[in-house]
């Protein structure tokens, strides 16, 4: 078999600067969305479990609704839809952060919720029996344990965020994906450029997955009581990243 195609790998090295810039944007976008949904996800999970019915319902509706649509729709809706109605003009970066955060807050809320529910009731009771108020029993006893249980799944969520973030290319953000598409249009070396970008994403995600695995092993030591043998609860996790084509 012979290829009519002449490989032009030098285009990849010539584009290294632009690709590195795109990678940096991807990392910034992902890190920001991750940090925000880490905090907001906890807030939604706490609202979901709070002893106040209306809050529970609100949080439940949020997690159900925001997990129902693909990121692609959020990005377009926030960037074009909101701008058209309210005249709020998000830049593509802000729109990307908001879309990724709204979606991942819903997923992280579910991870936190499962982790919080996995803490035996005896833990809370022991803390309350010492005279700690509910807030301190949560802060000192429940949350630290739940966070350890949740952390590997939360880091896995970061992996999904990095993958999903490529969707923002659709609104013209020059992240790693956007930059690649741009370069392909100008330099006509789709195989070489997409390969380089794919390799970069894979490397990034392998590193993050390894980090998650490492955390899982390290944190398994002092969680969920001596009797349970320090086992980390398995938490639900989203399997597939949404893709533009699958919207």
């Amino acid at each position: 078999m012979t290829f009519a195609y002449v490989f032009q790998w030098e285009i990849v090295s010539e584009s290294a600067g632009a690709l590195a810039h795109g990678l940096r944007l991807t990392l910034e976008l992902s890190a920001l969305a991750f940090a925000l949904s880490l905090v907001l996800g906890l807030a939604v999970a706490v609202a979901r479990l709070a002893p106040f019915r209306p809050l529970n319902v609100l949080a439940y509706v949020y997690t159900q609704v925001f997990r129902a649509l693909s990121l692609y729709i959020y990005v377009l809706f926030i960037y074009f839809g909101i701008a058209a109605i309210f005249g709020i003009n998000f830049g593509p970066f802000a729109a990307g952060v908001v879309a990724l955060t709204l979606l991942n807050t819903a997923y992280m809320a579910e991870i936190y919720r499962a982790a919080l529910l996995s803490i035996e009731p005896g833990q809370r009771e022991a803390a309350l029996a010492l005279g700690l108020p509910h807030s301190r029993s949560f802060a000192s006893v429940i949350f630290p344990q739940a966070f350890r249980t949740a952390l590997p799944s939360l880091v896995n969520q970061l992996v999904d965020i990095v993958k999903d973030s490529s969707v923002v290319a659709v609104i013209g953000l020059l992240d790693l994906m956007g930059t690649t598409i741009d370069l392909v249009n100008n330099r006509h070396a789709p195989f070489e450029l997409y390969t380089a970008t794919a390799v970069t994403y894979v490397a990034l995600i392998l590193v993050l997955s390894a980090l998650a695995a490492l955390l899982e092993r390290r944190l398994a030591r002092h969680v969920s009581g001596g009797s349970a043998g320090g086992r980390v609860a398995r938490l639900p996790r989203r399997r597939f990243a949404d893709h533009p084509g699958g919207a």
């Binding site: 005896g122 833990q123 009771e125 022991a126 630290p144 969680v223 969920s224 009581g225 001596g226």
Partner: peptide
């Protein structure tokens, strides 16, 4: 308590 309920962390 019967099952100690120590804080494992």
């Amino acid at each position: 308590f019967q099952h100690f309920n120590l804080f494992p962390h």
